[in-house]
Design a protein around this nucleic acid. Structure first.
Length: 549
RNA sequence: GCCCUCGUAGUUCAAUGGACAGAACAGCGCUCUUCUAAGGCGCAUAUGUGGGUUCGAUUCCUACCGAGGGCACCA
């Protein structure tokens, strides 16, 4: 309906740069447009006058096109045009609510590849990875709701200096866990010149696979790391289609840089090969270091082609923390000179950083919160809270993961989260469990309706007309579009929270299942529609909907 | 030093240049012999500072103050 109104207004005014939206304030109609304000500026006329002229023309179109769903159009405030829809429109919308409600075909059959999470083997999988995963998974699902063919991929560091530091640490402390060995090696690398040289040597050996003992140690560590990551992905509900590794693109990356030497790249200090980004307002970065090894930069140049070989994508989305924004600008500027077509299809999304109250996390200093231990801690809290409810472990985990994901997805993607356990993980108010609880309530009402043999039906809506709940539910598809267009899952989070609030209010103030009430079938149908929308919405956030809690 | 983000209630977060700046937590007061009170209802509190552009600025420009990130061989 929103698009319909916009179309008519465009037709009438010849203008397209204006908005139609559902106003926050209920007294401002069901949809509102600022078209008269935009137009009056151009014409130098009074906005209210312009609005009235537009309305007169819109009315003619409506009569001609037989659009009777619009009941009333008004000018309000400085010149907004407010549209009021008929009750019948909302009831018709409710009839469309099924498990596909909210989906559209705007990107039908487009191929999109989304890279996210990106942990490095032999290092801690920490809550920063949890954040990347939650955001990446939700953005992927938003794409899927638009009809996209999508591949989820994960690009993981399995060669490079961090591996050398971890291996060096492990050689000296065989009993240490890898994450600790890494921290140990990373610190010694900073403090101790000899250690630094040895680490550099190991880096070369890992890269060239020239040392048997190191190969064996490395292979086992790699296998263990990946198996461990898999258990976490399973908990989080992500199923990657393909894992990419730095070792797959190291040689190709180096070759690209060497081939581009003198054209795209040049020699820098100590024989390193660099890309001078200053020409395009960026900075210089090293692509092949003075040891002749490709850096992350070089590897990232080869990755797009490997991805493309795997899946002929129309768009490639890469999701990382925003501390890499400037890095990606430079890398993509270099890529644009080498593979312009692929560079044009690539989009980097920098999400906020998860910081601890005491400062930035660092796996080098060991000042990190491991994802696994956080999940366990939250599960324990859920267990305590639900001590009297006898929930199974799967449900407890659903609630815990829901609480975690909600806390990440409730704010805009780009903003940092200062992760304070007590404050960040909530079960009340704005929270994952709040949404899940509302869903569970609806489900239990539906169970009761079945038991009492009250069948859902929209045939007999209450004579008082439709309420806010119906109106809000009709907006779900628009919210999906908005969230997807902006790459912002929090649009969904906010919407679902408001919807849940409205449903809970409705639930508290009316008896839904009541054989003596002639409107009970309608109320049950409303509850059913709510449960479906909530479930679909939670799916978009990557949060599961339990049947009881 | 240079570049990029960002400063909204006590706290954590919302708000394409628009109609009274929305929630939640914490606080105070109500509310379970209706289908799960992890709920519902009510009260109170906010745009860092100074200029500018505009009919209209939390949003755009500018200066200042403050926070975070990045800036050559890490990823």
């Amino acid at each position: 309906m929103k698009d319909e109104i916009k179309r008519i207004l465009e037709k009438v005014t010849g203008e397209s740069d204006f908005l139609v939206e559902a106003p926050k304030e209920k007294t401002h109609g069901d949809y509102s447009s600022n078209v008269a304000l935009v137009l009056s500026k151009k014409l130098g006329k009074n906005p209210v006058e312009v609005a009235n002229e537009i309305i007169a023309q819109v009315n003619q179109v409506l009569i001609r096109e037989n659009k009777l769903m619009i009941e009333k159009i008004e000018v309000a405030g400085p010149g907004f045009i407010n549209f009021y829809l008929s009750n019948n429109f909302f009831v018709e919308q409710l009839k469309k609510v099924d498990k596909n409600f909210g989906k559209n075909q705007s990107l039908k059959n487009k191929k999109v590849i989304v890279e996210y999470t990106d942990p490095n083997i032999l290092k801690e999988f920490h809550i920063g990875h949890l954040m990347s995963n939650a955001i990446g998974e939700s953005i992927s699902r938003l794409f899927e709701f638009q009809g996209v063919k999508l591949k989820r991929v994960n690009y993981q560091g399995d060669v490079g200096m961090h591996i050398a530091k971890a291996v060096w640490g492990k050689l000296r402390n065989p009993d240490m866990a890898w994450a600790q060995a890494y921290a140990f090696g990373a610190n010694k690398y900073e403090e101790d010149e000899t250690a630094k040289k040895e680490v550099v040597g190991i880096n070369k050996k890992v890269f060239e696979k020239s040392d048997k003992e190191i190969n064996k140690l490395y292979d086992r560590g790699r296998k263990d790391s990946l198996a461990y990551f898999d258990t976490i992905y399973k908990k989080l509900g992500t199923d990657f289609d393909r894992l990419f590794f730095e070792s797959e693109v190291a040689d190709a990356g180096k070759k690209i840089v060497l081939d581009g030497l003198g054209k795209v790249f040049e020699k820098g200090e100590k024989g390193a090969i660099v890309f001078k980004g200053e020409a395009v307002g960026l900075h210089t970065r090293v692509f092949v270091n003075s040891e002749g090894l490709p850096t992350y930069e070089a590897k990232d140049l080869a990755l797009p082609e490997l991805k493309y070989k795997y899946f002929k994508y129309d768009a490639s989305v890469i999701i990382t923390a925003h501390e890499q924004n400037a890095y990606f600008d430079v890398m993509l500027a270099a890529l644009a000179k080498i593979k312009p077509a692929l560079a044009a299809k690539t989009k980097h999304i920098g999400h906020g950083m998860l910081r601890l109250p005491e400062g930035k996390m660092s796996s080098r200093t060991g000042k990190v919160v491991a994802a696994e231990s956080l999940i366990e801690k939250v599960k324990e809290m859920v267990r305590q809270k639900a001590a009297d409810k006898a929930l199974d472990d799967a449900t407890i985990e659903m609630i815990a993961i829901g609480a975690l994901k909600y806390s990440i997805l409730k704010q805009s993607v780009g903003s940092d989260i200062i992760f304070d356990f007590e404050k960040s993980i909530s079960f009340e108010g704005d929270s994952g469990p709040y949404l899940q609880y509302s869903y569970v309530r609806a489900v239990s009402v539906l169970v009761k309706a079945r038991a009492e043999k009250v069948k859902a039906s929209l045939k007999n809506p209450p004579t008082s007309g439709v309420g806010t709940l119906e109106k809000m539910m009709s907006h779900f598809p628009e919210m999906v579009e908005k969230a997807a267009a902006e790459y912002e899952p929090h649009v969904i989070t906010l919407y679902l929270t408001e919807l849940a609030r409205e449903f809970n209010n409705y639930y508290a103030n009316s008896k839904i299942v009541d054989r003596a009430d002639e409107f009970s079938p309608y109320k049950v149908a409303l509850t059913q529609a709510f449960s479906i929308i909530m479930k679909n919405g939670l799916w978009l956030l990557g949060i599961q909907a339990p049947d009881k809690m």
